[in-house]
Amino acid sequence: MLRKLLKYDMRAIWRIWWLLGLSAMGLSVVGGLALRILNNSGEQAFPAILEVFAGLAVFACIMGFVAFFIGSELLVYYRFYKNLFTDEGYLTFTLPASRAKILASKTLNACLWLVLSVLTLGACLIIMLAISGSLADFPTFLKFFFDGADVFSLLYILLLAVEGIIILLAGSWVSVGLVHFCITIGAVLAKKYKLLAAIGIYYLLNMVLSFVLQAFMILGVFATAGAIEPLFSALSETEIMFFIPLLLALIAVIVTSVALLIHYLILGKLERRLNLA
């Protein structure tokens, strides 16, 4: 059932998302050409008005990318809200699927579109830079980076990359979970203006979290900056080689635990507190 739920969730988003994605790709072509004009303005004499338009086009392009990302996110979260907490919720919850599966489908859907949006933005950036001619030296850079690397080093880099990707995926799960959590709490607390309540709760939660995290980060940075040098200078190369992947694994476990906790909190609210009546 999860597969079916996910299929329909993804299809619903795809219906509008592909237009946004295509627009972003189109914008990247325009932005690349504009950037090319700006890059070559020293060698070729372009009319001043063209350079001004090129600058504006690059700016519009970046704004377009931001709009694409925000638009993608809004699509996903609005579907979550509409499917579960409006009148449509009556229909959704009559489906032969548990609330856990419905939430899993929504969460997977949101994470997938978040990843796809980021990948699309990356592709747009590459297209833009390739057209503008800024990537000419990239193959040389890659050759320099990987030249002389033995199999062991490549495997080590692969391990770090895999851990990094797991952390990023778990991080996107946390960010999706936080938005879902706020929408759920907003819908549970407020009878009307549920979206407004969700936005308020999200703002409040974000503020509290950023305070706590900042305080912790400042303390952590001070402590680490002050203590890391004497601690690390005592480590051998082998110890550092073990330390880095272990640290990344720990971060991955911490982020996954947080994501899972948030997920279970939402599920608890959906299963026991939600009342659409």
């Binding site: 480590l235 110890e239 073990f242 330390f243 272990l246 640290l247 694994a249 720990l250 476990v253 911490i254 996954t256 635990s257 899972l260 906790l261 279970y264 599920l267 608890g268 299963e271 026991r272």
Partner: peptide
């Protein structure tokens, strides 16, 4: 609610402690 969910959390917490111990030992 569901005990299985809490057990998953407990397993993750145990892995967390093991990894932290390994890092601290290094």
């Amino acid at each position: 609610g569901n005990p299985k969910r809490w057990y998953v959390i407990a397993v993750l917490a145990a892995i967390w402690i093991v990894l932290a111990t390994a890092l601290i030992l290094i």
